[in-house]
Simulated assay, not measured.
Amino acid sequence: MTHARVWRFRPPSGREQEFEQAYSGTGHWAKLFEKAPGYRGTVLLRPSRLDDWWLTIDRWESEEHFKAFERDFGVQYRGLDQELEGVAGDEDFVGAFEED
């Protein structure tokens, strides 16, 4: 079983490349997540229509692994979130899911 966390984003016009560099599976967020045990990777889904939502899917071995990441890397998480302010544009947490 894999714990997946899904977010949707609408980056500001003209910042899509910067967004992709930060939020892709090799981007800034993924590099932070990789420091934590139980991280299984991130997938970035690009919209097929202009101005539609982008999606990220962050996968963890379990919800407990994600909670441990939040506990152990909360300061770094908030710092990166502040550093990337404005790159993500509109963002919403879609939800947490369990995947077979």
Rank of each mutant, 00 (worst) to 15 (best):
S62L: 06
S48E: 09
F93G: 04
L84D: 08
S48G: 01
D100I: 02
R78Q: 14
T2V: 12
K35N: 12
Q17D: 10
S24G: 10
R59M: 04
E61D: 12
E34T: 12
R59D: 06
H65F: 08
S48D: 06
G74H: 09
V87E: 00
G25I: 07
W60K: 05
A88E: 04
P11L: 01
E98Q: 11
D72I: 13
R59I: 04
V43I: 11
V43H: 15
D90T: 02
G41M: 08
E63R: 14
L44G: 05
P37I: 04
L84E: 05
D92Y: 13
E20G: 04
H28N: 13
F9A: 08
G38N: 00
A30L: 10
H65C: 02
R5P: 07
Q82E: 11
V43K: 04
E98D: 11
W60M: 07
F33L: 03
A30Y: 00
D72F: 09
L50Q: 11
E98H: 14
G89E: 00
Q17P: 06
P12W: 06
L44W: 03
R40G: 06
E63G: 14
K67H: 12
G89Q: 00
R78K: 03
D92E: 15
F93N: 05
G95H: 13
W29L: 01
G27N: 02
E70W: 10
E18M: 08
M1K: 13
R8Y: 00
E83F: 09
D100S: 10
A22E: 04
W60F: 11
F19G: 07
S24P: 02
M1W: 12
W53T: 00
E99A: 12
L45W: 12
W60S: 02
L50N: 03
F9S: 01
A30K: 14
K35R: 15
Q76S: 09
G95E: 04
M1G: 08
R59T: 02
